[in-house]
Simulated assay, not measured.
Amino acid sequence: MATSSIVVEKKKLKHPPLEVHELGDKVLRQPAKRVTKIDDELRETVRKMLQTMYSQDGIGLAAPQVGIHKQLVVIDCELEDPEAKPYVLINPEIKKFGSELAKDQEGCLSVPGVFADVVRPDAIEVTYKDESGRLQKLKADGILARVIQHEIDHLNGVMFVDRVDNRLALDQELAKQGFSPKAVKPLA
């Protein structure tokens, strides 16, 4: 279970380095490409993604959310702990899903102000490369498993709102925040 060696201060920047795209933007619906080269340029992208995520109080951010079509995800479920290191997942693949399902509320930096219940497996096993190019395997459950699944969905052009069962409540929440329910692409 390798956490990142790339560490940035967990603080809000007045001008985060990257712009987060929002629901309705076509870039969020395009599948990301596998990362073929792990180099200093990619590590700098990771640094900027972390700064942007922390600036928005996020616990996960996928590269497509900031207009970068690469299979790259940053996650930090422990925003309050300055010592906790983030996860950097390059080309992540879920290898196993647990049999238990859990319903919990999700939100997304690309759909600010909207929260809704989503059912997902409570435990997963994922493989990925870290920012040094080493293959890693991680067994995750609870919030970390949920965030990994949420972010991997982004890599496939899927957003959490696509997984919401209660469409009426979702449509009301979206309308309150100025989003079009037509931007949702239900998976069911």
Rank of each mutant, 00 (worst) to 15 (best):
D122A: 14
K70E: 15
T127D: 09
Q56T: 00
A188D: 13
E78D: 15
G113A: 09
V161I: 13
R34S: 14
K26R: 12
Q105A: 10
L23I: 06
K26Q: 11
K26S: 12
P16G: 11
V158K: 00
D25T: 06
D104R: 13
P86G: 07
L13R: 13
V126G: 01
R163T: 07
E125W: 09
D117L: 10
D104Y: 10
M159L: 15
E131H: 03
V147D: 02
K48R: 15
V184K: 05
L144M: 05
C77N: 11
V164M: 04
I6T: 15
L138E: 06
Y54V: 08
T127W: 03
L174P: 06
S132K: 12
G178C: 12
K37M: 08
V88K: 01
D57L: 08
A84L: 05
Y128E: 07
M49Y: 04
D171R: 03
V126D: 00
G107M: 11
E80N: 13
Q56F: 07
G24S: 07
L155M: 05
Y128Q: 03
V27Q: 02
I124M: 03
A169W: 00
M49T: 09
L187T: 14
Y54K: 03
N166V: 11
Y87W: 14
R34H: 07
L13K: 11
E78P: 00
R43V: 12
L61V: 14
L42S: 07
K182W: 02
A32N: 05
L79N: 10
Q177E: 15
L13C: 11
E93Y: 04
K96D: 09
Q149H: 02
R29G: 01
R167H: 07
L79D: 10
P31M: 08
K48A: 13
G142E: 11
K96N: 09
R120P: 04
P31I: 11
H154G: 11
G133P: 04
V7M: 02
K176H: 10
H69A: 14
E131W: 00
K10I: 14
L23Q: 02
V8K: 04
